[in-house]
């Protein structure tokens, strides 16, 4: 069994605490196997964090550069990153409680939808929002995820294919005008294939720029932690994870703002 499925089962023993996200969710949606790292949406409560950190500690995990697994930073949108060796492989695990671009109501629905699922993983409608990153390599995934949406209106909201959009508009002309208000690129439907392609690319680059700006805000806010990280990492390497965690929390309290936009 995939180490990520084993981890997910252990993280969720007795209660749903984590939902597989990003690259491994793409595998579970049967679109592609393209990532060797594991990402999870973590439930934003203390018991969940304690349990997951305990499971990672049992496996000899260590922190990579990032925020501590602590509600104060996770509520501010930070991510935390740990890795451990497993049967000759390096297993990387990334966690966040507030996935980018997913609204609080969508997130609440996701937790409800995934209750009792094994394995729980992010649905296409949420994953395509998370995957709208500054990285080129994520966008083909967004394109295929949009094709998994059942509702033609949702497909028109998210499709990356000009041909698909033209076909959808022909089949559901009543959807076009209301959706143009939500997605201005759809106004180019009347201009034909090339014009629509250009507008879709403008839209994509704008989304990539927005994500890059978001990440840059976090990077700038992490500069203080970075300056102490080499020494902190050396000290954490000698400690079991629960002690290393406390050390990281102490350092983060001093030099990592809980929310970068508030710094």
């Amino acid at each position: 069994m995939s180490v990520y499925l084993e981890l997910t089962a252990d993280f969720n023993r007795g209660r749903l605490r984590t939902i597989v996200c990003s690259g491994q969710a793409v595998v579970l949606l049967r679109l592609a196997i393209a990532s060797k790292d594991g990402d999870w949406i973590l439930r934003e409560d203390q018991e969940s964090l304690d349990h997951v950190l305990g499971e990672l500690g049992r496996r000899g995990a260590r922190y990579r550069f990032g925020a501590p697994m602590d509600l104060r930073w996770l509520r501010g949108g930070w991510s935390c990153h740990l890795e451990f060796p497993h049967e000759g492989t390096r297993v990387r695990t990334d966690f966040f409680t507030r996935p980018p671009r997913v609204s609080a109501s969508r997130l609440a629905n996701l937790w409800q939808e995934q209750e009792g699922k094994s394995p729980p993983f992010t649905a296409a409608a949420d994953l395509l929002l998370i995957k709208q990153t500054a990285r080129e390599k994520d966008w083909p995934i967004v394109g295929e995820l949009a094709r998994l949406l059942a509702d033609p209106a949702d497909q028109m909201r998210h499709s990356r294919s000009a041909r698909d959009l033209l076909a959808l508009a022909a089949a559901h002309p009543e959807l076009v005008v209301p959706l143009v208000r939500e997605r201005p690129a759809l106004a180019a439907l009347s201009g034909g294939l090339d014009r629509l392609r250009i507008e879709l690319e403008r839209e994509r680059f704008a989304a990539m720029d927005a994500d890059a700006q978001r990440v840059q805000r976090y990077l700038a806010a992490a500069a203080g932690l970075q300056s102490v990280w080499p020494e902190l990492e050396r000290r954490m390497a000698e400690l079991p994870l629960h002690q290393a965690h406390r050390l990281l929390v102490d350092s983060a309290t001093a030099c990592l703002p809980n929310c970068p936009t508030a710094s």
Binding site: W78, D94, F96, Y218
Partner: peptide, 18 residues
Amino acid sequence: EYSHGVFAIPRRDWPEAM
């Protein structure tokens, strides 16, 4: 490199000191 989260841009694009 970081695959996701708030550090998921290529490290070469991080601020120089980082």
